[in-house]
């Protein structure tokens, strides 16, 4: 008995969807998630992974099937059917990807918004238009305070812990302005938003914590910010992710996420004596 091709196609399609779901949900490709925006990121990653797996496995299946099913036997000199195109089919595979990428774009906009990526970086006073105008101008000594890029705090009413980050060849220096602590590694309390105000003195570096799923370049002459809320205690690597010279690979540090109490203890023991 011949099974109608429509049914085979249907079954293959369902198998693909299941496979995509399985790969996305049950296979873990990412490091631990240790900040509040990491689960949001992972959600996007799973959607991308599911769509990508279905597409890749589906296309591979069709190509391999064609190579076997339609291979030329020895001595066969015939041509295939003279099909030159098919308008409805071509419209179909224009429209479907267009819808998929549009959906992805809107979805990732939403994700980015939830990560705080769409908040105005220079909210204090400067309106959008002025910011755009300023960005085309050269940086002037006056606008040292202008923020050129990054992820700003999503809401300004919660208590944010500011930390000044200076990147130089080949180290990060963290300064806590309110506590007057300077440190080679970053300590943050779990559950509180931290705002990194980042400057570089020599070349471009980048601040990356894989477990937080965030990265921002640190650019000489153009201060940037990066806000995150860690929510899982532990010790995570900070990696420089922009080629900055011979020791670029060695430019690493740590971020230690503590319970608020142990963080307070760390602050106490490290606050310079002159201040107390």
């Amino acid at each position: 008995m011949r099974i109608p091709s429509a049914i085979i196609t249907l079954i293959a399609g369902m198998a693909l969807v299941l496979l995509g779901q399985w790969v996305a949900n049950d296979v873990n490709w990412l490091p631990v998630s240790a900040s509040t925006n990491a689960p949001v990121y992972d959600e996007l990653f799973r959607v991308l992974l599911a769509i990508g797996t279905m597409l890749l496995v589906g296309m591979t299946g069709v190509v391999v099937y064609s190579l076997i099913r339609f291979r030329r036997r020895d001595g066969d000199q015939q041509d295939g059917p003279p099909v030159e195109g098919n308008l409805s089919l071509e419209l179909f595979w224009t429209a479907i990807p267009a819808v998929v990428v549009l959906f992805l774009g809107i979805y990732s906009y939403d994700i980015y918004d939830r990560m705080g990526g769409m908040t105005d970086l220079n909210a204090h006073g400067m309106d959008h238009h002025a910011a755009e105008l300023a960005s085309v101008r050269q940086s002037q000594p006056g606008d040292e305070e202008r923020i050129w890029g990054g992820i700003a705090p999503a809401s300004s009413n919660e208590a944010v812990l500011p930390v000044e980050v200076t990147a130089l060849q080949f180290a990060f220096v963290f300064h806590y302005p309110e506590q007057n602590i300077t440190s080679g590694e970053l300590h943050v309390p779990s559950g509180q938003a931290v705002e990194l105000r980042m400057k570089a003195n020599d070349v471009i570096h980048a601040f990356w914590v894989p477990e937080f799923r965030i990265k921002q370049d640190i650019i000489p002459g153009q201060p940037t910010v990066l806000t995150f809320t860690a929510n899982q205690t532990g010790d995570y690597p900070i990696v420089c992710a922009e080629l900055c010279g011979p020791y670029h690979g060695g430019m690493r540090s740590h971020v230690v996420v503590d319970e608020p109490e142990s963080f307070a203890t760390w602050v106490e023991t490290n606050t310079p004596a002159t201040l107390s």
């Binding site: 990121y41 992805l104 990732s108 990526g117 990356w208 965030i214 992710a241």
Partner: peptide, 11 residues
């Protein structure tokens, strides 16, 4: 997708 790229850019 910006949020995805922010993690894996330059890796």
């Amino acid at each position: 997708q910006v949020p995805f790229d922010v993690h894996v850019h330059d890796t």
